[in-house]
Write a protein that binds this DNA or RNA. Sequence first.
DNA 1: TAATATTACGTATTACGTAAAGATT
DNA 2: AATCTTTACGTAATACGTAATATTA
Lengths: 139, 139
Amino acid sequence: MEMQQLRYVVAVARMGNFSRAAEHCHVSQPSLSQQVQKLEEELGTRLFGRMKREAVPTAAGQVFLTRALRILEETDTAQREVREAKGPLRGVMTVGVLPTIAPYLLPEMIRRIPQKYPGVELVVHGGYHQPAGGHAAGL
Amino acid sequence: MEMQQLRYVVAVARMGNFSRAAEHCHVSQPSLSQQVQKLEEELGTRLFGRMKREAVPTAAGQVFLTRALRILEETDTAQREVREAKGPLRGVMTVGVLPTIAPYLLPEMIRRIPQKYPGVELVVHGGYHQPAGGHAAGL
DNA sequence: TAATATTACGTATTACGTAAAGATT
DNA sequence: AATCTTTACGTAATACGTAATATTA
């Protein structure tokens, strides 16, 4: 049982079918299908019925889903608590982004970064040139 | 954050050092060390101090450990509940084992199988020949 | 120097994507 | 026919083991 498999299963339950779950998870749909099958094999039970164009959780799937959700919440909690134990993050985050794709990435980024790291100043470079200094950020 | 990494971290905390944790997890000690490092890098914090010949959890390590333990418990619970949702397992389990290694494997097996699957009849073939029929069991 | 942890590197597992086939409405 | 899922298979990422190096008592 792997974390990704739990995310995939939860996504299938929330989206209602494998295709939309796959694009929500940013993986190809066969890959997601494989991972769900693998988990089902490990558990010895089908988690979803795939008959009528929508993925419906089986009885086993329902009890598993509640646990999977709790596990994923716990992982988020663990990461948050570790961050808090480290103390607040401070400094300047410099990000370079091509003007071509900026409209797709920037709004989400400008919304989430300050929310998650209140002490961090966000600097965005928009041109095609290489920014002079600062630290790159992996997101 | 992967499930194995959580098991490794918990093992290190329980065993007190990386070497014993590794043999407890049946992996080489460098592999376990790599995985713990990888998790620490992802979290952005050391989870253990490795100074004095024993691995002592840091402050961040302690808060993480309690969450990791709960997550592992939840995975066990999830698997158990799915088994229960399937209904009790019944039938005959046939196992072949070489007399050479039987003394090492049989006692553990005879103790745990009926405990975990009360409805299953366990048949053990001890010779060097191939058993006639029945189903092989992967444990 | 004995015991433990890390680094380096090659190998084997496996998760993934693309393409094709099967199934359902 | 259109949409969704599974199978097949090659590729890429990665977890692992062995060997060598570093660190600590």
